[in-house]
Simulated scan of single mutants.
Amino acid sequence: MADTSTYQAPNEAEFGDFVALLKPRVMSLVVFTAFVGLIVAPVGLHPLVAFCSVLFIAIGGGASGALNMWYDADVDAVMKRTQGRPIPSGRVAAGDALAIGLALSGMAVMMLGLSANWFAAGFLAFTIFFYAVIYTMWLKRSTPQNIVIGGAAGAFPPMIGWACATGGIAIESLLMFALIFFWTPPHFWALALFMKEDYHKAGVPMLTVTHGRTVTRRHIFAYTLVLAPFAVWLGLTSIGGPIYMSVAVVLNALFIARGWQVMQRTDEQSYRDGHKAEKSFFKLSLYYLFAHFAALLAQHWVTP
């Protein structure tokens, strides 16, 4: 278990520091994909129920972030990218972060069960457990496959949104899961290509650290090939259509082409131009996921 006892806040924290604990940028992705999963489901929900469902999924996602920050405070203190987070910077005490994470987790699960259904609530509870325990406490520090397996936690929200509306699982929700699940490794490995030293210093066995950048580049390209069929398959289901399919075909062709470009690079080329291609691929990966789910939403709204 991580030693978080040394991270005590010398000053009183501000409200913004507690918001930062919930990883609002990550939460925004959780909210959006869960919202899309709920909206495109074949069963409509009362607007108030839908709003409450998305709200409590978001709170559950924020709770996961707080638990992650509590456990990873020692790692965050070492990595340049995360040193300014509330706990390692000393603005929030580790114990407070743990208490907030546990309290919000319990509240989110209970309230989702009461507002939507208990299947969705159980799914949310499992997702919080998976991210906080399976990924954060176990996989992240023990295997270079941490992102591959742990990525499931970030892929569950649209399935939870779908479950809020339908009370179950369907091929459409599974394919939305697959879209995020297979997108996650190339997205994070692209980041790791130009942040390798941070992970090395922190002792996190990211693929770039354990197998090097050349192997990581090959894995990125391989995952773009695996990802594309699932993205297109989703367009052939009841929630797909010409709008979504057009976006999926264009974006996946571009994603594969950029992945191929990254794979052909050498470390010397990357250092020489400041990781230009790797950063470009990472930026594209951010738009990639948003565009697919936005296309699902647009397809739903224009379909009679």
Rank of each mutant, 00 (worst) to 15 (best):
E278D: 07
S173D: 08
A58M: 07
F188S: 03
G235L: 00
G16A: 03
A120E: 03
Y244P: 06
Y131E: 06
A9C: 09
A41P: 06
L289I: 15
L114F: 14
A152K: 04
Y135L: 06
T214M: 13
G235I: 02
A41E: 01
A257I: 10
T214F: 10
T4C: 11
A9D: 10
I100W: 11
F177S: 00
E268K: 13
I220R: 07
Q261N: 13
A41F: 00
F181L: 13
R265E: 15
Y7F: 15
K283N: 12
W118D: 06
P144H: 09
H46K: 13
E14K: 15
R85F: 09
S115V: 14
W260D: 09
A9I: 08
F18K: 11
P42D: 12
S28T: 14
T237E: 09
P304T: 11
R218S: 14
L175W: 04
V43P: 06
F18C: 10
L227I: 05
I149F: 13
I220H: 07
A152F: 12
V78L: 13
G151I: 07
F130N: 07
R141M: 10
L286W: 09
L296H: 02
F282L: 02
K283R: 13
A77L: 09
G65Y: 06
D72R: 02
T136L: 02
P186I: 05
R272M: 13
G65C: 06
T127F: 02
